[in-house]
Write a protein that binds this DNA or RNA. Structure first.
Lengths: 194, 194, 194, 194
DNA sequence: CATGAATGAGAGTTCATTCAT
DNA sequence: TATGAATGAACTCTCATTCAT
């Protein structure tokens, strides 16, 4: 059982980074079960052996990638917190989420799939989710929106936005009207933040 | 490539049925990637060869199972449509969904995972979802609740209920208060059905 | 972790037998570390997959082979126990051991090597060794040779014979005179059996 | 294929020495097949690259180590040759061998295993063994014990002592009485040296 | 129509060795 | 001369699928 190497030289730090970045990218693109270690190695431009210098196995790349990119990919929210009206904030949230869903379209689906399959990853995911909920609560506070049952309300709000973004991005149900969906969601969020 | 046989004799029909039922059950229980065809054969009490008499491959069992059981497992809703108040209906929906989530706890997670991994299954899933949305619209109509943007509104409502059930069932975020969550969701659905 | 199959059909019993026999033969011939599973499969005339139907891994073949052939290869002794003189018995033992060493020349060396490397096998080997010692004690009893410290004496006697056979078979030390060696060993065994 | 370098500088000589000593130690401790070159490098406190500056491959370390340490580990015998009685000498031999077996307990087993696996090593081993036999013959001569068939007799004697030490050290056969074994062996050696 | 043994490509992983720095 | 990152062939083992019985 060989030790996983902690890179010391500059070039090896880059190699580890390359494997993680490209490997995770490929996993998201094609699906964890649809690629093998040779694929990852080729895609990252390294040998298969190099993978095992820095990661203890295939799944390790996935988990490391999750840890590094999960927040970025799955839980974005507005970072600039100057004074805004409630309406501006709601729109901003929706736009941000939508933009992100479109950007990481494929990753999103694959990651959700993986998260639902593996307890270790599921836990990671849920922690990040709660973390975000809290940050949004704070963000709203800074914009003078203070709520009872704040965590629960924001949890629901985020799920509404996520569901909306998902629907608009993948357009699974052709009979649903985009604009109507958005309107209804905004109405509900307004209700939540009342 | 041997032809898949369409059973005619009574015993054959039963065999095919057994493979489908037990096979799908096992897939849901343990995960599609965590079992093999021998497992399925053993669990169904048939030989591995028999599987390939009635299904063209492993995935075929999954898809057939999905087709047969998806509505039952994932999209339940109240069937008895006598006159009820709006409040009764909302509670009924939530209870039904929750009951179902708890009943099919493991299957649910596994199926979501699979659905997000495979386009063919995803499409199947979305069709069933839309079908359900329409049925609920009708159900409400029969109970004299008639809405503008009905499809969109019910889609959102169902996603709220689903998210609630999920949270209550898996209890991922320990810091969220169950009762508060329920209260807020009911408030929102009331708003939707106004 | 797939189950190891217990063969039911007649042909599969033969297959398992073939893998064990040929596999063990090859291991003895070329050395456990010098062959791989594909070699074993080819040599036995089966596919690599078949190996894992009947054995849980490569080492399992070795252990099973040991169990089956160890006595035969490493611990032979005269089986016909009619009345003989002490001198006849000693010669008989030496001849039997020598004959066997020459027959299994290569296996012998390889097996000793493996036995010294693996605790599980070592234990197996020692059990067989003690078993043999006891049987020889009984064999001598039946021929009216009864000893104090019989187990210890026979243990030493067998080690002398083994060492002699080894020397005569592999002829490692060219400067040693065969006949002188034999003479001295016989003298000592006579002393032991006094 | 890079040339193996013969060290000239003092530091280089030390490096080569360190690899040999520590590398061989590790091989003996853990087994040639259970360690890799990185292990050896770490254990010796050098880089993997350095190994290949002074040794042409992994096995070369083993052979060099054998050459250097075999006598010391496997064939010890009393060095101080002042006048002693036969009985004293016998006891001294046994004690020396036993002491050594216990000291190099693990190495012993591993080396025997390796020796039986590789012809080159086997030859080396046998040469050392014969060398020792001759030295013991001389040692006895110096103590006024002069024998016919001396080489053969001493070969047998050493094998008896080795077998005894082995048994006492590893205690493989619990049913054998230690003291009885020793007594019988001493009796036989007395017979040999008569 | 049922059986389950046989298949073999392909999976993840290891490690002796090389070579740019 | 020393380093340790990079290599990639070779390893053991799995499993969906086939097919003789």
């Amino acid at each position: 059982m060989p030790e996983v190497r902690e890179p010391k030289k500059k070039t090896s730090i880059e190699t580890k980074q390359k494997i993680l970045e490209k490997g995770f990218e490929l996993i998201c693109k094609k699906g964890y079960h649809h690629i093998n270690c040779i694929d990852i190695a080729n895609y990252a431009g390294v040998s298969t052996g190099s993978i095992y210098q820095y990661f203890s196995n295939k799944k390790d790349i996935l988990i490391s990638g999750m840890n590094k990119y999960l927040t970025e990919i799955m839980f974005p929210y507005p970072k600039n917190n100057t004074n805004k009206t409630k309406e501006e904030i709601i729109l901003e949230f929706i736009e941000e989420s939508l933009k992100n869903h479109k950007k990481y379209k494929i990753q999103h689906e694959e990651l959700i799939s993986i998260v639902h399959q593996d307890k270790e990853l599921a836990k990671l995911y849920q922690e990040k989710e709660l973390e975000l909920t809290k940050e949004v609560v704070n963000y709203l506070k800074e914009n003078n929106i203070i709520l009872e049952n704040s965590l629960e309300k924001i949890h629901i709000m985020l799920s509404l936005i996520d569901n909306l973004s998902h629907e608009l991005t993948y357009h699974h149900h052709k009979e649903l009207q985009e604009q109507a969906l958005i309107t209804e969601v905004i109405k509900l969020i307004n209700e939540i933040l009342k």
